[in-house]
Design a protein around this nucleic acid. Structure first.
Lengths: 200, 200, 200, 200
DNA sequence: GATGAATGAGGATTCATTCAT
DNA sequence: TATGAATGAATCCTCATTCAT
């Protein structure tokens, strides 16, 4: 009995995932250029040729990984509201950011790595800016709602703090343990915002 | 009659600098692996072969760049004191960090890039940790001196903020303008520390 | 549908032989260092890259040639006995040595060449000594069985004679024709042994 | 006081010898192709450029070494007579051959090495044949004078024995000690010649 | 869909040789 | 005479990509 089209589709999907997983692992660990298609194929347990059955080129494979990553971010992070977030919502958003990175270190390591080498994945910085935009906006709204004197400025440093903490988690998780850092960052953000009423 | 030893030394010094400059530019821009010796030579205006008269290998060239960078950091950053830094000293230290990065974006872009790909320059994370150690200590001392309840925790988030701000400067200086960011970060740090007396 | 494993194996086996043959020819003729992978590939009718699909490096290719050569020697030369060889056995052994070299001049030229340049194939002298050991022993036994006064000394000069004759065959077969030389050497060896009863 | 022309000449001669010595050492040890001009210059304590002041090319340097070697052989070996050598003269001639090689292993290692790779020093085999010619002739004369039935055949195997012994000395002096070998070879040669009266 | 042999362009590295000083 | 910086051709080797089966 021949497989139905659906089964084929399923197989294709799974194999593709297999390849992408292997690639992500290696790209994140060793970098895009230092990773060969051979290595990816071996890790995925397939032949070199088959990889080209699923991806036009090594660059396209990278691109799909990037897209995949951004899609996950988009799904998880959409500030599903346009109004002013509550304190809980805001805190939960920060927390989610950390969890997202913590649960998918490889994607994020790859992202950061690519952002520092924009020649590889051309549009990554733009995409990242695009994804970040609504988050910045949401942050800004929230901070401003607290009567802050310089909401933009505080948003900048809060973003910095988050970004920096995520970087520590990605690059040196052993130095600054994730859970502690997350907790402290959330706490710190609120302290900054609270202290923003009477300055600047 | 041959040139004097001094003349040779002079030539070597200048040419070496030339090569390192070209390499730094390209490594920072495109990444280590995506940069070929040919490109470096062309940019430096020399022949491929000559590069090997100055550096044993591409890797060694990278290593020298890294060492050079760290040396500059070391020189600029040594917290020339063991006691508790004054507020001015502390602020000036933060400011210097920003200036250091701002004045040498290429080195720093390379550093961050390498830290995310430790396979390339083996010991870079260790070296960075080594360089950071005294700075962490100094921060800790300063924060603790302010009667902070959790100096270590605050140090973590302040470090994060600085690191994140530097990352923004390196990767997206157009979004968050350096001078503004620097000023806001310093301000933010003091607000955090001040607010750290009564919490946690 | 891909080829079966057997087909692949067959292809690999044949192509490998092709490459090794080309390499042996060129190494023997021009020497290891003076032979480039390009030349080998061209002679074998393949691309440069493919050579590396079969051999990790030029050195490994050499090593496999050496091993191949020694294996053939081992197979052909094993003195399949521990006792005292008869006159016929002994003569046949000498004859076989000559034939072995005569039938595989290229391998032997390579061997001799490498033995004179031990930097290239590190262990070749040891391997050669290892292979020669049982032959020396067999010779010694035979000579001693003839009541020789100094079997070791006679073995030395007989070995020298053989080695020297082989060298002539390898390097200047046109001067001393192989068949004649072989015959004369065998005759000479017996004369030496016979004359060894009353001297020294 | 400027040096006289003679002094200059002297200096040139000495420096040239210096370079040739270094080259010989390295060529013999590692082979012609594996030895770079840089290495030679360093070993000779001069600059790369200067080497080219004395030798047109690396190949010419080799050629001069070869010529030098052959000249020494010629000087030492000329059978300064056309008549039949006496037993003592013959024995002394063999002995001298061994001493010549033993005292100048490097030249001889180079020679043998080149003879096996005629591509490098084009005419070496011819030259060697040329040098050997009178020696063969002398041997032949001597052997024939002993009433030998097949002087040419015996000359072949005696030459082989000598050549082989020299090869052992060059390549594996530790296995067959030179002095012993020399003595045994001379003895063996006489035994062969003596036994040549009643056979073949 | 699946395989891995095959290609060839490109990259790191070496080295004989030249040349300004 | 003497130096070593400089060149560029040649070499080893890698790897993305293609393709016959």
């Amino acid at each position: 009995m021949p497989r139905t089209e659906k089964q084929f589709e399923q197989i294709r999907k799974e194999k593709k995932k297999l390849i992408m997983d292997a690639a992500l692992e290696l790209f994140a660990m060793n970098g895009f250029h230092a990773t060969s298609i051979s290595q990816i194929a071996k890790k995925a347990g397939i032949s070199k040729g088959l990889a080209y059955n699923y991806f036009e080129s090594k660059n396209e494979l990278l691109q799909e990984l990037v897209d995949q990553g951004f899609q996950e971010v988009g799904e998880m992070m959409q500030p599903n509201q346009d109004g002013i977030p509550s304190d809980e919502e805001f805190a939960s958003f920060i927390e989610k950011s950390f969890d997202m990175v913590g649960n998918d270190l490889r994607h994020w390591k790859l992202f950061y790595s690519l952002m520092l080498q924009p020649t590889v994945a051309e549009n990554i910085n733009e995409k990242y800016a695009e994804v970040s935009e609504p988050l910045f906006k949401m942050m800004y709204t929230y901070i401003a709602s607290k009567g802050n004197k310089d909401p933009e400025g505080d948003m900048m440093i809060i973003s910095s703090m988050i970004e920096g903490a995520l970087l520590y988690i990605i690059v040196a998780t052993d130095i600054f343990p994730m859970e502690r850092l997350k907790e402290k960052v959330i706490d710190g953000i609120f302290r900054i915002i609270e202290s923003g009423g009477g300055k600047n």
